[in-house]
Design a protein around this nucleic acid. Structure first.
Length: 662
DNA sequence: ATTAGGG
DNA sequence: CCCTAAT
């Protein structure tokens, strides 16, 4: 009779309890059947998409390529359309025909500004962005929503005029095929904005078209009819998963100046990049191994609540809840209105002027959204909390939604609270009163290195001073230094960021977003770029910064101390490798920052460290004695594992044999 | 959720 | 540390 027994490692003087464990060596890396199936499905979808595309291309006036498709699952997009457009791209079942403002002239601008409402009040999250920054900023999750049947997405659009049709297409960056495939794949929506008459565009302003009121959000469970018109369209994408979780990616703004230079090359490269991104995002069965995609993939995970196949939402949400925060999406993002902005503004300023006709092929369209609302962002802090704590708390919640790089400002009655040390009650807020006076601002974290933050998409850098211009222009012909750039003063930018730091009493918030239009003022969700001023520039940094923050989402490195190593070694000696959860429980229960994966990884590096010569080791030296134990334990458990494997194999053979004999 | 292993 | 696949 065989009895389980304890193995002991005499040579090392400690006991290794025997814990049976099935080998995992038989794991297969790939589930080829599933992959095959999905690839097949994707191919099917792609070909279907291709067909649809052909149709849409062949009839330029009837572009509802996807009309009639059942896209019940879809989410929200902002859309806009020309009221008088015969080339309506998206039928507007979601638009508001009754909206008087929707007849406007139609210049689009790109922007972002967030406004969210918290429990009792609306808070303005200010974050402006000018689309004219010539920078591709990458796929960025802007807002995700996870509520069933809810929606809420904001889009930042920019676009260009396609060569063939003169149609202005807002928004950015997917190759048609890819985007379409994504769409058909059930996860991506592309929304195209068209302007059929380029001449009109020119009359108004060569570059900045301002978007009036017809920005619409579609609810998650509905689908806009979208079309793709011609290659080179830039489209917005909404990704969603099958659980109606959704996430909007703010597509890159491949900012191009109103230059006559077509800059096709840059655009194409950007588009290609995002095209692949789109592909990756939804059809990740296609192996993509380049770094960019990997990064994008990572972003996908960062995107709140987004997961194409599985609801990751739950985990994310729980994580927030664990911290005492609850972020709810409720009721949908409202972009109730768009302001009218003076499209004249920019032309008068001359900032974006360019000779008419030169850029007819390639006009950037800038859409400026000053604010939008996140249905609800619930943050709880005690009355006795300081303003600083409130800011941090809000920041945490906002970061969860939008990524980092944002500085939270607190407004009381439209005035900025400068002293973080005040408690909420000190500034006149209590649980039940005056919360309506409370507002928030979102500002970019000042960037000390405003240039080249966007390493991933170094399409264009923002000018910081004139001497850098030539270089940029060289790299990106589109960035013609002759074009007056309205926001060249990086110093100003930094200063404006820093200026928010100073602690004083209540000072009027010097923004264009002032008290009267905060919270519930919906009338000016969209503002002309010209009004954005340097803050518009700042948003570029916000984007970059938040992008960088996303990239640096990796946890801060926390090297193991010798003490920790000792504990780890000891635990592994007892428990063996392969029981990291137990190791965690046993020895790192209180170290919340050490996951069992961390412990496993650390063990791996310890084994490696122990295997190499002391000269090759880096970091805080681990006592040789510990390393010896590491190696000993490692060897022991390795051997143990092999024994186990042998036993299993033997057992398997026996089973087989007995099976045959029966 | 855990574990294994590559990056 | 991160990411992914396989449990």
């Amino acid at each position: 009779m065989v009895v389980k027994r304890r193995f002991s490692c005499v040579s090392n003087g400690f006991d290794f309890p025997y814990i049976p464990r099935a080998p995992r060596s038989s794991r297969r890396k790939v589930s080829s059947k599933r992959a095959d199936d999905q690839i097949r499905a994707i191919d099917l979808l792609a070909s279907l998409a291709g067909k649809l595309l052909e149709e849409s291309e062949s009839s330029s006036t009837s572009t509802h390529a996807f009309e009639g498709d059942n896209h019940d699952h879809l989410l929200g997009v902002i859309k806009q359309e020309q009221e008088d457009g015969y080339n309506k791209p998206c039928k507007s079942e979601f638009s508001d025909p009754g909206n008087p403002a929707s007849k406007s002239t139609s210049e689009y601008t790109s922007v972002t500004c967030l406004q969210f409402s918290s429990l009792e009040n609306d808070c303005i999250l200010k974050q402006t962005q000018i689309s004219d920054c010539k920078r591709a900023c990458g796929l960025k999750p802007l807002v995700g929503c996870e509520n069933k049947k809810r929606d809420c997405e904001l889009l930042v659009e920019s676009g260009d005029i396609s060569e063939e049709t003169g149609v202005v297409n807002a928004a950015a960056g997917f190759e048609q095929g890819e985007a379409t495939r994504g769409l058909e794949d059930g996860g991506l929506i592309a929304d195209t904005f068209n302007l059929q008459d380029p001449r009109q565009l020119h009359l108004q302003s060569p570059e900045s078209v301002h978007l009036d009121d017809d920005v619409k959000l579609t609810p998650c469970n509905r689908v806009p009819r979208c079309s793709f018109e011609g290659y080179g369209n830039h489209s917005n994408l909404v990704c969603r998963d099958d659980d109606e979780n959704c996430c909007k990616y703010d597509k890159c703004k491949s900012y191009r100046p109103p230059s006559r230079v077509g800059n096709r090359r840059v655009q194409n490269s950007v588009m290609t990049k995002y095209g692949r991104a789109a592909s990756k995002l939804k059809s990740f069965e296609y192996p993509r191994t380049d770094g960019r995609l990997k990064t994008l993939y990572r972003k996908r995970k960062l995107c709140y609540g987004y997961n194409p196949w599985k609801p990751e939402t739950v985990h994310r949400k729980r994580r927030l809840s664990d911290k005492g925060l609850a972020v709810n999406y409720d009721g949908g993002l409202s972009s109730e209105s768009a302001s009218n902005s003076s499209e004249k503004g920019e032309s008068e300023n001359g900032d974006f002027s360019a000779p008419i006709g030169l850029h007819s092929k390639d006009s950037r369209v800038k859409l400026s959204i000053k604010s939008f609302r996140i249905p609800e962002l619930v943050v709880e802090v005690p009355e006795t909390a300081t303003v600083g704590l409130l800011k941090r708390t809000v920041n945490e919640a906002v970061t969860a939604l939008l990524g980092g790089g944002i500085r939270i400002g607190v407004l009381v009655q439209g005035k900025k609270v400068r002293d973080d040390n005040n408690t909420l009650s000190q500034i006149g807020l209590s649980c039940r009163e005056n919360l309506g006076n409370l507002g928030f601002t979102l500002d970019p974290v000042p960037e000390t290195l405003p240039v080249s933050l966007c390493s991933e998409n170094p399409v264009v850098s923002m000018p910081t001073d004139s001497k850098n211009l030539p270089e940029r222009s060289e790299a990106y012909p589109a960035l013609d230094s002759r074009i007056p750039f309205p926001l060249q003063d990086a110093d100003h930018l930094i200063i404006s960021g820093n200026s928010l730091e100073n602690n004083h009493e209540l000072v009027p918030y010097q923004s264009d977003i002032t008290a009267e239009e905060q919270p519930s003022s919906d009338s000016r969700a969209l503002v002309p770029v010209s009004a954005l001023d340097s803050k518009a520039f700042a948003i570029v940094l916000v984007k970059d910064k938040s992008k960088r923050t996303e990239l640096s989402q990796r946890r801060t490195r926390r090297p193991f101390s010798v003490t920790e190593v000792e504990a780890l070694v000891h635990a592994v000696e007892k428990l063996g490798t392969g029981r990291w959860r137990d190791v965690k429980k046993r020895s790192f229960e209180d170290a919340s920052h050490r996951t069992y994966v961390d412990l496993k990884d650390k063990w791996k590096t310890l084994v490696h460290t122990a295997s190499i010569s002391p000269q090759q080791r880096r970091g805080e030296p681990v006592p040789q004695e510990l390393l010896d134990r590491v190696l000993a334990a490692h060897r022991y458990w390795l051997q143990h594992q092999m024994k186990q494997n042998g036993k299993h194999q033997l057992a398997a053979k026996m089973v087989v044999r007995s099976g045959w004999s029966m």
